[in-house]
Design a protein around this nucleic acid. Sequence first.
DNA 1: TATAATAATGATAATGATTTTCATTATTAG
DNA 2: CTAATAATGAAAATCATTATCATTATTATA
Lengths: 142, 142
Amino acid sequence: MTDELRIFRNFIKKNNIKNSRSREKILEIFLNTEKHISIYELHDLVKRQYPEIGLATIYRAMNIICRSDLAETINIGDGVKRFEHKYGHRHHDHLICIKCGKIIEMHNDDIEEIQKKMCKKFDFKMTDHKLQIFGYCKNCLD
Amino acid sequence: MTDELRIFRNFIKKNNIKNSRSREKILEIFLNTEKHISIYELHDLVKRQYPEIGLATIYRAMNIICRSDLAETINIGDGVKRFEHKYGHRHHDHLICIKCGKIIEMHNDDIEEIQKKMCKKFDFKMTDHKLQIFGYCKNCLD
DNA sequence: TATAATAATGATAATGATTTTCATTATTAG
DNA sequence: CTAATAATGAAAATCATTATCATTATTATA
Ligand SMILES: [Mn+2]
Ligand SMILES: [Mn+2]
Ligand SMILES: [Zn+2]
Ligand SMILES: [Zn+2]
């Protein structure tokens, strides 16, 4: 059994949620993609193997998967939530190509440090942050 | 006439848009608030002086005001776009209190510099970026 | 294993922000 | 002043997401 499945089942047990075949299939398919994936795209993927699974079930499953800390959402401002793996992936920021939609992941410790410093300056207790850089990726520069 | 009104009328002229009383009133009221304001809130404000102005007109006006670079949108992830002044306000990032909704503005040149460096590293041509830090403001810490 | 309690499901309706449509009104060039 | 056309408000449409509800699946326990 994978770490992720173990974590998921633990979360299910701890929260008086019942097990469900569908939900574990959704988790499996989500974990097998490396995209920043929307509900709609994930539903499409899931339907290929399990055509009977409805959209609402994907919403409900991804909600629980996020609460179990296996996924988190990103919002690039186009009105659609996307999901990415959280387990085994350290915090990172995103470079988002406004032409092709490509999302590049990056991390920089200095930025993180300065952020903390700025929070201290404003007596602000940070719980989370997101840095998104919009522009053109390598391939989309003429 | 204010700088802003001049810029606005120039933009109107350059883009074959007709002048409109309502639109300039919306602009005026928007410029008189210093909040990060939603369409709904702005409509409420506008209705006090001009009860006949409809919601769609606020949407249409703010869209043009943004295109004229007098305003820009921020999206703090609650599904509602907010607008803030752009003219005469340099770029800044936001600390967003997840309890009371307060938005603190901050700017740090080092962060901006590192961002540019990271873009170079990935051959990415930045057009825009946003950094949002979520947490608790001074007043909301117990 | 059978059963009762209850959570999960899919279809569909509801919601909320935003956009579009359309008939009417306002602006503007000539 | 008039014709052309953009702007308007009301209402309908759209789109992502959430809630509802009757049915099905899971699970604890008798
Ligand atoms: Mn990512
Ligand atoms: Mn601001
Ligand atoms: Zn690209
Ligand atoms: Zn606060």
